[in-house]
Computed example of a mutant assay.
Amino acid sequence: MLQMHYLNAAIHESLRLYPPVQFDSKFAQEDDILPDGTFVPRGTRATYHQYAMGRMEQVWGPDCLDFKPERWLKKGAFVPENPFKFTVFHAGPRICLGKELALVEMKTVALAIIRGFNTVAEDPDQVPRFIPGFTATVRGGLPVVMQEKERSLKIHHQPTSM
């Protein structure tokens, strides 16, 4: 089976920096105590901000703002992070049921673009404007410049016999 380690790393790195859902909240059904000893009373709303967490130096290191797919590779092989560190798909018993399907869809789209275009780049004349909200949005979309690959058709003509 084809693993596509670098593509997998690039997708995870993109999701770390630009999670589709920027923040999420959970409510404590019962009194609880967090691993650091913090008491959480029943009914407390705990919100975590995945967009900010993906940019935290204490979590991802001094290069946390850099797009660096290599951080997901060990000896050339993709190695996922702990889901409690990389919270894009949540973690624990409530991990996203659609995680694997979403990853397959992203890889499929990426491969279709790679096969069909020589270059794909942000439009240098346009500056993306991020819009804060529940889901990640770029005002006006993300303008890109794409150069389609030339396709040469090979036609094999076989004479018909009469």
Rank of each mutant, 00 (worst) to 15 (best):
S14M: 10
S14E: 05
L15E: 03
L15Q: 01
L15C: 03
L15K: 00
R16A: 15
R16Q: 14
R16T: 10
L17G: 05
L17N: 03
L17Q: 03
L17K: 04
Y18L: 13
Y18F: 12
P19Y: 09
P19H: 13
P19K: 12
P20R: 08
Q22L: 15
D24Q: 09
D24V: 10
D24C: 03
D24I: 09
K26W: 00
K26H: 03
F27I: 14
F27L: 12
A28N: 07
A28L: 10
A28R: 04
A28V: 06
A28H: 02
Q29C: 12
Q29D: 15
E30P: 01
E30V: 14
D32G: 13
I33N: 07
L34F: 05
P35D: 02
D36G: 04
G37S: 08
G37Q: 10
T38Q: 15
T38N: 14
T38S: 14
V40Y: 03
V40Q: 08
P41D: 12
P41R: 14
R42G: 12
R42M: 14
G43E: 07
G43M: 11
G43P: 06
G43L: 13
T44D: 06
T44V: 10
R45K: 13
A46N: 07
A46K: 07
T47K: 01
T47I: 08
Y48M: 02
Y48C: 02
Y48I: 00
H49K: 05
H49G: 00
H49P: 00
Q50M: 09
Y51C: 03
A52R: 10
A52Q: 07
A52Y: 09
G54P: 02
G54M: 04
G54Y: 02
R55I: 02
R55Q: 08
R55E: 05
R55L: 06
M56R: 03
Q58W: 01
V59I: 15
V59E: 08
W60K: 04
G61H: 06
G61T: 08
D63V: 01
D63F: 03
C64Y: 02
C64D: 01
C64P: 04
L65R: 15
L65K: 14
D66A: 08
D66F: 08
D66M: 07
P69Q: 05
P69C: 09
E70P: 03
